[in-house]
Design a binder for these strands. Structure first.
Lengths: 344, 344
DNA sequence: ATGAAAGCGCTAACAA
DNA sequence: TTGTTAGCGCTTTCAT
C-alpha cells in the first residue's frame, strides 16, 4: 500500500517528526540527517498525503475557477491565464462552468459543487447582488467580469464603459454615423449593460443616434446569436454603417451574415468585437476588437484570492481595473490600411 | 468556527455515529431520529468536512484533466464535456495544461502537479511510450487522443487513420487529385502520424501522389502555423487543388492565406479540417471537418477512470473508439451546394 | 437502531 | 536538533 511518514521514519530509524521536518524543509535539520531521511523517502517512494495535510492545516492548495463556458475562447484563454498564475504560487485550479445560469452561479458561490478549495474565482453572468448578500461560505471569493456589484468582494475587470466608448469612438473617427449594438441580453438581468452604456454615452456625446432600434437583444452570446441579431437588424429596415458586438464570436457571426447577404466589411458596414480572441485574427476579414489583458486579469484574480488567505491582515475589498487596448484590424480599417498585422 | 459532527451530536443529544448515519443516508435510522438530527444540522448549518472524509476513505472526488492547451477550442470543448461527465458521477475536475511539452506531460503523468486526485485523464502530444513505462504513481491513468501507445492504460480516441481516409476520400470524390497535408509536426515525435498515414493510404490506394512535397511540417498547431505552412506549400511551386489540415485552426489559418493570395475556396483549392470547432461554422467560407464525438470521448474517459476506482475487479486496459463523422460544408462543396446548413 | 472508540496521515506544541 | 504526543473531522468495526 501507500507509504506514510511512519514507514519512512521506521526505515530511517528516526522519529516521524524528523521526517516531517525534512519533507517540509524545516530549517534546523543537520545535513547528514536530511540526507539519510531523504534516502529513505526515495527508496520507499514516499509521497505526502494531501488529504491529511489539508485536514491538519485547513489548506488545500486548490482554488476553483467558475466560468460561464469554456467554448467561448475568451474564457478558455482566461482559464489558461489563471492556471498559470496559480501555478506560480504552487496552487492548482479546479475548473467549473456555470453556463451563465443564475442557479448554477448561486450554487457555485455557495460552494456546493466544490468544497475542497481555499478560494473561488467566479465570473458571473446572471448572478444578482442579492444572491451574494447572504453568502455564508467562508472561502474567499473574487469576482470577474463586467457586471457591477455593490458587495464586499474583490472585483477584477477592465473599464467596460470606457472600452466600449473607445470602440465606438474609433468607428465615429472613421466617419461611421449609425452604429448598431449587438448582444444586449434579453430579460431582467443585463450582463452587457456596461458596454451598452458606453456605446450610448459615446454616440450621444457625438450627437449621433443611439435609439433602441439600433440595439439587438439576444438569448446567448455565441456565433449563432450574433448572426441572428444581425439578421434581425437588417430585416428591420435599418441599415447601420457600423456594428459593435458584445464579443468576438457574436461579431464573427454577424460578419458571416453580412457576407451571405453580399454586404462588404468594412466598406458597407464596419464591425468591432470585444475580447480579441485568436479566431478574430484569421478570418477572411480580420476583426477589430477590444483586447483585455487576460494575463493581468488572471494574475490579479489569483493574487486577490491568495491575499485573503494570509489570515492576519485581510485587505479591504476593492475594485481592480485591468488594462485593455483597441486592436484595429480589417473589419474597420479595410484590407489595405490594416496590412497583415498584429496576429500577436 | 466551523461546526463538526460532534457539535451536531451535542446539539441533538445523540452520538456522533448517529449523526454520521443521517448525513450518509444510512438505512437503519428511525424517521423520528433522522428528523431530529436533520433539524440540528440545519440549525447549526453543518457542512461535512471533505478533507476528513477523504483522509478516512482515501478518495477525493477529484479527477485531473491535463490537456495541451485551452486556447484550442477543441480542447476547450472537450474539457467542458469531461466536466459534465464527471459531474454526473459527482466528481469535479482539476484542470491542467501541458503546452504539449514532453517534460510537462511527464510531470503530470507522475502526479507532480496535482496530488489530491483519484484519477487522471491525460491528452499527450509529445509523450513517448517509454516515459510511461516505469510510472509508479498508483492513481488510474487514462490516455486521450491520437498518439499510439503500447501500454497498459485505457486509451480513448477516434480511429484517426480511418477518419483521415474519409476526409481524403471526400476530396477525391469531388475530383480533387492533388491533396496537400498541413500539420505534420517537425522533429522526432509525431503527433500527427496517424492522420498523415490515413492521408497517404487513401491517396496511394487511389493511385494519386502522396509525396513529401505535399506535406508541410509545422512547429505548432495553431492558426498561424497553418497559415505559414500554406504559404510554404504555395511558394514551393506546388499548386494542389485540395488541402487536408491536421486541425481546424490550421485549416482556417490556411484559408486566410488563400484568401490573401486571391485563391478561391473551394473553387481553386478545397480545404478540410479536423475537430469541427464552432469557429469553422461561421467563417466567410464554412469549413468541412472531421467531427469527433467530444461528448462521448469525455464520457468514456470519465467512466474509464472511475471503473478503475472500484478496487475489486479492475478491468483490463483497453482501447476505446469513439464515434466521428465528416461534416461537409462550403470549403469543399461550395456555397450553393452547402447551403446554410449544419451550424449544430 | 444507536453508541463507544480506534485510527486514517499529518502538523505543531511541547519536551528532552 | 530531534522525539513524543494530541488532535484535525470523519468513517467504521464492534458492542449494546
Amino acid at each position: 500500500m501507500r507509504v506514510s511518514l511512519k514507514d519512512v521514519a521506521a526505515h530511517a530509524g528516526v522519529s516521524i517528526k524528523t521526517v516531517s521536518n525534512v519533507v517540509n524543509n524545516y530549517q534546523h535539520v543537520t545535513p547528514a540527517m536530511r540526507e539519510r531521511v531523504q534516502r529513505s523517502i526515495d527508496v520507499l517512494g514516499y509521497r505526502p498525503n494531501l488529504a491529511a495535510r489539508h485536514l491538519r492545516k485547513g489548506r488545500t492548495g486548490i482554488i476553483a475557477l467558475a466560468l460561464p463556458e469554456l467554448g467561448n475562447p475568451y474564457f478558455a484563454e482566461l482559464a489558461a491565464a489563471v492556471i498559470d498564475a496559480a501555478a506560480a504560487h504552487e496552487y492548482i485550479v479546479l475548473l467549473d462552468h456555470t453556463g451563465g445560469h443564475r442557479e448554477q452561479e448561486i450554487l457555485v458561490s455557495q460552494g456546493f459543487r466544490a468544497r475542497v478549495i481555499d478560494g473561488l474565482i467566479l465570473s458571473p453572468i446572471e448572478l444578482e447582488t442579492e444572491d451574494l448578500r447572504d453568502r455564508v461560505e467562508n472561502v474567499p471569493l473574487v469576482l470577474l467580469g463586467e457586471r457591477d456589484y455593490d458587495l464586499p468582494y474583490d472585483h477584477i475587470a477592465i473599464d467596460n464603459v470606457a472600452a466600449a466608448r473607445a470602440a465606438v469612438r474609433h468607428l465615429n473617427g472613421l466617419g461611421r454615423r449609425e452604429v448598431a449594438f449587438i448582444g444586449a441580453r434579453r430579460g431582467r438581468s443585463e450582463p452587457a449593460q456596461l458596454r451598452v452604456r458606453g456605446w450610448r454615452e459615446e454616440l450621444t456625446a457625438a450627437g449621433l443616434p443611439a435609439d433602441d432600434g439600433l440595439v439587438a437583444a439576444t438569448d446567448g452570446w455565441g456565433h449563432a446569436d450574433g448572426a441572428a441579431a444581425m439578421n434581425r437588424i437588417l430585416e428591420s429596415g435599418r441599415r447601420p454603417d457600423a456594428v459593435f458586438a458584445y464579443n468576438d464570436p457574436m461579431a464573427i457571426g454577424a460578419m458571416r451574415v453580412l457576407h451571405e447577404r453580399g454586404l462588404r466589411v468594412p466598406e458597407d458596414i464596419a464591425v468591432v468585437g470585444f475580447d480579441d480572441v485568436v479566431e478574430g485574427r484569421f478570418g477572411a476579414v480580420t476583426l477589430t476588437s477590444v483586447s483585455p489583458d487576460k494575463g493581468a486579469i488572471g494574475r490579479l484574480a489569483v493574487e486577490s484570492v491568495l491575499a485573503r488567505l494570509g489570515g492576519n491582515e485581510v485587505p479591504a475589498p476593492r475594485r481592480v481595473w485591468a488594462d485593455y487596448r483597441l486592436v484595429e484590424r480589417e473589419s474597420t480599417l479595410g484590407r489595405a490600411a490594416a496590412g497583415g498585422g498584429d496576429r500577436g
